[in-house]
Amino acid sequence: MIEELAVGAQFQIPYLHIVVNNAYLGLIRQAQRGFDMDYCVQLSFDNVNAPEVGGYGVDHVKIAEGLGCKAVRVLEPDRIAPAFEEAKKLMAEYRVPVVVEVILERVTNVSMGTELDNIAEFEELATPG
């Protein structure tokens, strides 16, 4: 549900809303893994109104702006921290939610679980040097 963005804009509630975009309905796709499925969960398509999203389909920046918010798109990992800094400035200036959309690789598995002490990791965790 994204209506919370419009409510935040309506009542001038600045907060950071992060969208991790891999052009999939990610948690649904992951839930299907146990059934050896990957059915109707990808959202990648060439959006004629947003060629800048490069086949990732939905333009979350335009959606956020259409709901009265501000938004920043991140295409490279080294741009995440600067995007958060830009988001802070936009929140202070406009007093609305700011969406930071981070474009990920297409098939990405996120950590998930039913309890904090029962999290399934699908990728090896980064460890300090």
Results as ranks from 00 to 15, higher is better:
M1S: 12
M1Y: 11
I2C: 04
E3R: 07
L5M: 09
A6C: 07
A6E: 09
G8M: 08
G8V: 05
F11M: 13
F11E: 13
F11Y: 15
I13D: 03
I13K: 13
L16C: 10
H17F: 12
V19R: 05
V19Q: 12
V20P: 00
V20N: 13
A23M: 05
L25F: 03
G26K: 04
L27E: 11
L27C: 11
R29L: 07
Q30V: 14
Q30W: 08
Q32L: 01
G34L: 11
G34M: 03
G34T: 08
G34F: 05
F35P: 04
F35S: 14
D36K: 12
M37H: 09
D38E: 15
D38V: 02
D38G: 14
C40Q: 14
C40W: 09
Q42M: 09
Q42T: 15
L43P: 01
L43A: 14
S44M: 10
S44G: 15
S44L: 01
F45W: 14
F45T: 10
D46W: 06
V48Y: 06
A50E: 10
P51T: 12
E52N: 08
E52T: 02
V53F: 03
V53K: 03
V53L: 05
G54A: 07
G54M: 07
G55P: 03
Y56I: 03
Y56T: 11
G57R: 07
V58L: 07
I63E: 03
I63K: 01
I63T: 04
A64K: 02
E65Y: 00
L67C: 07
L67E: 01
G68K: 07
K70D: 12
A71Y: 06
R73W: 08
V74E: 01
L75F: 09
L75T: 12
L75N: 15
P77G: 05
P77V: 10
D78L: 01
R79W: 00
R79C: 00
P82K: 01
A83N: 05
A83W: 02
F84S: 02
E85A: 11
E85H: 08
E86K: 11
E86F: 00
A87C: 07
K88L: 12
K88V: 09
K89M: 10
K89H: 08
L90P: 00
E93N: 11
R95Q: 15
V96H: 03
V98P: 01
V99R: 01
V100E: 06
V102N: 02
E105N: 08
E105M: 09
S111N: 15
M112I: 14
G113K: 06
E115V: 01
N118I: 03
I119G: 03
I119D: 08
A120N: 13
E121N: 13
F122T: 04
F122S: 04
F122D: 04
A126H: 11
A126G: 08
P128N: 12
P128F: 09
G129H: 10
